[in-house]
Write a protein that binds this DNA or RNA. Structure first.
Lengths: 135, 135
DNA sequence: CTGGGTGCAAAGTATTTGCATGAAC
DNA sequence: GTTCATGCAAATACTTTGCACCCAG
């Protein structure tokens, strides 16, 4: 279990026990939505407020400590910031996996064709994971 | 102005004036969120209810007459169903453009590497459109 | 200490539901 | 005629805000 105190402070966030637990939970689950995060944090802090979760998620997003991932037909999930990557979502079990792809070619071709200056690519593959294919 | 009566019926949706106007509005705007759609429809049907908008958007999604597009940091927008394509979003003016890309290579490589059976790809480029670059 | 975070309650916003009426087919 | 859509009002769900108290730095 990593200690995220310094990481939080680097992002101008005080390292409170609630925030450390959010960081640990994101680290161990990979991706999680607000409601699940709240349920998990309640086990450790039985009086934690949903407002605290929202306030922290919002300020962590503003300070780029975490990122939001928008999944088709689902509530947004959140993950710790890391190098750019894409996502795979299983439509059967809901599992979310990260995958690092080289999209530089796609990006530059698209920039040329559209005259957009491209800063970011959000890419989500939906399908059926290996485990669910065999069920 | 296309007539969407038959298209609606093909998707098992009765062709009401409200639905026809939703279809026309989506066609002319390309992409639109719930609130803007409501404001536009109110000009034609001054007593239209927001509940009607929500009910129609939901049933049109279920019947695949329209698709939802999730844009980073924005409310979802909706578009008429058409062949698979990706989106470009301008972070400055909010403009959304369609682009058709051949992602078959990317898709098959990813399927091989992850053992996912991939059904759908949601791809959004964020950046600055040509117009906003010159301002 | 001091600024900022927490928890609670309340407010605000977004979305869905139930039902009576009315329109599509 | 029957089925389903509409509009209204109410209910529910989701998210933010204000404030008193408390903790991290």
């Amino acid at each position: 279990m990593n200690n995220y105190s310094n990481a939080l402070r680097k992002h101008h966030l005080k390292a409170t026990p609630q925030r450390l637990e959010i960081a640990n939970t994101l680290a161990s689950y990979g991706h999680i939505n607000i409601d699940n995060l709240y349920e998990i944090l309640r086990k450790k802090f039985n009086s934690i407020s949903l407002a605290t979760i929202y306030k922290n998620i919002n300020i962590m997003l503003e300070n780029s400590f975490i990122q939001e991932v928008k999944i088709p037909h689902e509530k947004s999930v959140y993950e710790l910031s890391k190098e750019a990557h894409s996502h795979l979502v299983c439509d059967k079990c809901g599992a979310i996996e990260d995958i690092t792809l080289d999209l530089s070619q796609l990006s530059s071709t698209t920039a040329t064709n559209t005259h957009f200056k491209i800063d970011k690519i959000d890419l989500v593959f939906s399908g059926i994971c290996q485990k669910c294919q065999t069920l």
